[in-house]
Amino acid sequence: MRNIPVNLSGYKLIVTEAPVMKTRKTDDGRAEEVVTDREGVALFVVSLMSKAQGEKGEEIKVTLTTDPTAQGDDFEFGSLVELIGATVSPYSFKNDRGETVSGIAFKAQGLKPVG
């Protein structure tokens, strides 16, 4: 199952690292390349602290399919935000040491300021 819709309306989402273009290391590990979708459009990533009332917070990284600053919004450390079209996808793979790594990846169509 991929791209499972997720409802985060009961959570405060606070920017801990401003959105940046998503990159990954090249196969030789010497440089970074921009990560794009299937159509070649650049993806972005933002780090958020998600916290529900009375619970301990959790930092999550969210891949964004659009440039969050394209509408002129500025997302600085501490900004309260809302995810547009948020989804999660489970993953599992073997790393270079043969260990199985599993988890969920957050993705959203965009980001908008709250208030």
Rank of each mutant, 00 (worst) to 15 (best):
34 V>L: 13
110 G>E: 05
72 G>A: 06
115 G>Q: 12
43 L>W: 00
108 A>K: 00
5 P>L: 10
48 L>T: 03
12 K>E: 15
25 K>L: 13
95 N>L: 08
31 A>R: 12
9 S>H: 10
113 P>A: 15
1 M>E: 06
64 L>P: 04
62 V>I: 00
78 G>F: 08
49 M>Q: 13
3 N>I: 01
84 I>R: 03
86 A>N: 03
48 L>G: 01
58 E>M: 09
91 Y>A: 07
113 P>F: 02
30 R>C: 07
44 F>R: 08
75 F>C: 02
20 V>P: 00
7 N>T: 08
43 L>T: 02
74 D>L: 13
58 E>V: 11
56 K>W: 03
79 S>E: 12
112 K>C: 05
79 S>G: 00
26 T>I: 01
105 A>F: 00
60 I>L: 06
70 A>Q: 13
99 E>Q: 12
111 L>Y: 02
82 E>V: 05
111 L>H: 00
70 A>H: 08
50 S>P: 00
16 T>G: 02
57 G>Y: 09
11 Y>G: 04
36 T>F: 06
52 A>P: 00
81 V>Y: 05
15 V>D: 02
54 G>L: 08
29 G>R: 03
34 V>S: 12
8 L>C: 04
17 E>T: 09
22 K>Q: 12
14 I>T: 15
65 T>I: 05
78 G>C: 07
72 G>Q: 07
34 V>H: 06
